[in-house]
Design a protein around this nucleic acid. Structure first.
Length: 426
DNA sequence: TGAAATGTTGGGGCG
DNA sequence: ACGCCCCAACATTTC
């Protein structure tokens, strides 16, 4: 049996500028491409999940280009460790190439599989690909991680050197075998009504002037593509100019929260700052329901939530407004909001979602102070003055079907200040 | 990547 | 001309 390398696709669904794939193709062994639909993860998802659809469509696209070269993606569904145990029986594998995953679940999974493969004398080689700087590349002088954004960003920029984007080399090195690609139905899923759209790089140059105005719809729609790796972060960085510093900041925030999650994995379930542990959340079920459905009676909050529910996207400013409303006005634990966003957002990324929810709730590292409370009426005046955005998503606005405010702003504000103050310790 | 409360200033109306 | 009041506009502090 021919010795081969395996390249395992995970959240890097592209052939272009893919670090581990390029390394594999240069390894002088034929490269078999693999994707595993992890049943552990899939079983939590609805059968028409848009993100599964997106992954599936991108794998199909890649499989089609590989088939032009008499190769294929081996696409299977199962428990990753079990899949690997079968694979080493069916193929004579010399090395396995992956791009590094930094999330707790991925790290545990990879460690287990690496151990198994090494026991079979198979190399497990992992590479930095989804970030510019990974967890231990941006550290303070004493070698510990940053927990404050600005100094982190300064160091990040300080050590950034642009690298040329790698071209795909060695198409002829793909393992020559045509393997049928499973249908979405065979994987236990069906077509979603929600679509992940292409990104639009040309919006980036206007990011700093437009970013606060949701009605302009001037977002790049990059986030799901960075999440699933359908574009490389190096390619995006290479498109930025010195005028794009505000946009670049957001990319640095992305890596800031990734390294926070890496070094402080307790944030997944706990406050980053334990002195906020004493906050007495009200967690009223009916309030949370109304927030989820976009029926709070605050037009801007409701518009944001309905945009999320209907499209899987939410404009950045609305993420702050809706999150602040849930935590501060409704005194609902940020974990409920985080879980809802995780379920709905097409660009859901554990590190960013968790980091930003904790930022809003005041419990996170370098977060907004607890007494900073967004006024949804003021925010509407400032950022959607002509009410174009709110009317798009809340068509019944102004009629008597539209509900009265769930809570009075001034009362809610004072209540939040009190409850937060009382809950603080240390 | 807030907002409200409080403080200060300065112009205009008026006696 | 002057002091007084009112209040808008802006600045600072507080939450």
């Amino acid at each position: 049996m021919e010795n081969i390398s395996v390249f395992w696709f995970r959240r890097d669904l592209r052939l272009e500028d893919n670090t581990a794939l390029n390394k594999a193709l240069l390894s002088r062994k034929k490269v078999l491409c693999l994707f595993i639909f992890d049943e552990q993860i899939l079983k939590e998802l609805p059968s028409d999940d848009a993100r599964v659809n997106f992954i599936y469509n991108n794998l199909c696209r890649i499989d089609q280009s590989l088939k032009l070269n008499n190769s294929s993606i081996l696409c299977v569904k199962g428990n990753p460790i079990k899949v690997w145990k079968e694979l080493v029986q069916s193929y004579s594998i010399e090395s396995v190439f992956v791009n590094k995953d930094y999330e707790p679940y991925g790290r545990t999974r990879d460690a287990k599989i690496k151990k198994f493969l090494l026991s079979k004398s198979i190399d497990f080689l992992s590479f930095k690909d989804q970030v510019i700087h990974e967890e231990n590349e941006v550290l303070k002088k004493d070698g510990t991680p940053y927990t404050v954004f600005t100094p982190y960003k300064n160091k990040w920029l300080d050590i950034y050197k642009s690298k040329p984007v790698a071209n795909l080399q060695g198409y002829q090195n793909f393992f020559q075998k045509i393997i049928p690609f499973p249908s979405l139905y065979e994987l236990g899923f069906k077509k979603s009504s929600i679509n992940i759209q292409d990104y639009n790089i040309s919006q980036i140059s206007k990011y700093s002037e437009n970013r606060d105005f949701p009605n302009l719809d001037s977002t790049s729609y990059l986030s799901p593509h960075l999440r699933f790796g359908t574009v490389s972060i190096r390619l995006i960085m290479s498109k930025l100019t010195s005028n794009d510093d505000v946009f670049m900041n957001e990319l640095v925030w992305r890596e800031f929260f990734m390294q926070i999650l890496f070094h402080f994995p307790h944030v997944v379930t706990q406050n980053f700052k334990s002195k906020y542990n004493g906050i007495k959340w009200l967690n009223k079920e009916e309030d949370f329901e109304k927030w989820c459905l976009g029926k709070t009676g605050y037009p801007l909050v409701d518009a944001g939530m309905r945009q999320l529910n209907e499209t899987g996207y939410m404009h950045n400013r609305l993420r702050m407004v809706t999150a602040s409303f849930l935590c501060k006005h409704l005194l609902t634990d940020w974990r409920f909001g985080e879980a809802y966003f995780a379920k709905k957002l097409l660009d859901y990324e554990l590190s960013s979602n968790n980091g930003n929810w904790q930022w809003v709730s005041g419990t996170g590292c370098d977060s907004a102070p607890y007494f900073r409370i967004f006024n949804p009426i003021e925010q509407l005046k400032k950022f959607d003055k002509d009410e174009v955005y709110v009317k798009t998503w809340v068509p019944e606005l102004g009629t008597d079907i539209y509900p009265d405010p769930i809570i009075e702003h001034k009362y809610a504000r004072n209540r939040a200040l009190e409850v937060y103050k009382k809950g603080l310790s240390g």
